[in-house]
Computed example of a mutant assay.
Amino acid sequence: MRKTVPYFFQMKAEQERIAMLTAYDYPMAHWAEEANVDMILVGDSLGMVVLGYDSTVPVTMADMIHHTKAVRRGAPETFVVVDMPFMSYPTVDIALSNAGRLIQEGGADAVKLEGGESYAPIIKAITQAGIPVVGHIGLTPQTATQLGGFKVQGRDFETAKQLMCDAHALEEAGVMGITLEAIPAEVAKRITQEVTVPTIGIGAGKECDGQVLVIHDMLGMFDRFKPKFVKTYADIKSIAVDGIRQYVTEVKGQSFPGSEHEFSMSKEVVEKLYGQEQN
């Protein structure tokens, strides 16, 4: 049965950790649901790990809706959160329209927005419209260039204090949870203790209420770079490449397909078929 927003608050209250994974298509979502993850995130990281872009910036609403539909079909019983892509929420009106599309057309249960207290008015408008929102502070990939690249955030007192202000502003705006990305574990722990909403860490230490990883990272399927916070639980790429290499070898050596992979017809039809060719 699909979990609900109150259930995640209950998990925080009972200190039961929330396990979240990204998924971008039907099979990955199906695997995640079969493995009993609590939440699936259709992240705009699909731009890098699925579509091959250098960042998440080129990802469009059409991309997000397309992939969210596939994920929903693959995981009908799992709570699905979907990222609002770059420039899909510059104003309240545009944000409301796009958030609504992700819910209505994509089939998501909640949307996720990057940004701190300056985005609180937009988030509040979305939540007041009845759409659950997950916030995202710390390293925000859509604006990584402004942050100096993909770097840890909140290491000095002033920036750490700002992260705490951001978290409280998002809480007051009505978010159902906050993603904390690439921030010191000590800061994430303090935020988690102070806010009433669940925190989901990615490179934010073990004291968060839950964790999220990109499924392609944790299964060894994306190797352009590997963040420090990623743990590889399986090496799917090596297995896949070995399998493909064996296929190529067998095709070139004519050992595939074998007779067990072929279809046949009756001897009489064969004789008639070849007899017609000979005439």
Rank of each mutant, 00 (worst) to 15 (best):
H136K: 04
K228P: 08
R190L: 13
P227I: 04
R101Y: 00
Y53W: 12
Q276W: 10
Q15F: 05
E77F: 07
Q146W: 09
D156F: 14
E271M: 08
L147W: 07
G210M: 06
T56H: 01
V270N: 01
R190V: 13
P6T: 08
E172S: 06
Q193I: 03
A144T: 06
E117W: 04
T143I: 09
A144P: 06
R245W: 00
D44E: 08
Y24I: 09
I191N: 05
L170V: 00
I18V: 15
Q276P: 00
K206N: 05
G107T: 09
E158C: 05
V57Y: 09
M218H: 03
A234K: 08
H136S: 00
T56C: 06
R245H: 12
F157P: 00
A185P: 04
V152Q: 15
V270H: 07
N98A: 08
V269I: 09
I178P: 01
E114Y: 08
G220F: 09
V187S: 02
G135L: 03
V5F: 12
F256H: 10
A75F: 04
S88R: 13
D25F: 02
D44N: 01
Q15G: 00
G149N: 13
E117D: 07
D38T: 05
V81E: 04
L219H: 09
A29L: 05
V187P: 01
Y89S: 14
G148H: 10
V230W: 00
E14A: 14
T140A: 04
G154N: 13
L170R: 11
I191R: 00
T78K: 01
Y233K: 10
T78D: 04
E105C: 12
M28W: 12
A167I: 07
I178N: 02
D156Y: 14
Y26P: 01
E33K: 04
E34L: 10
V111R: 01
K272L: 07
G100C: 05
F225K: 05
E262T: 15
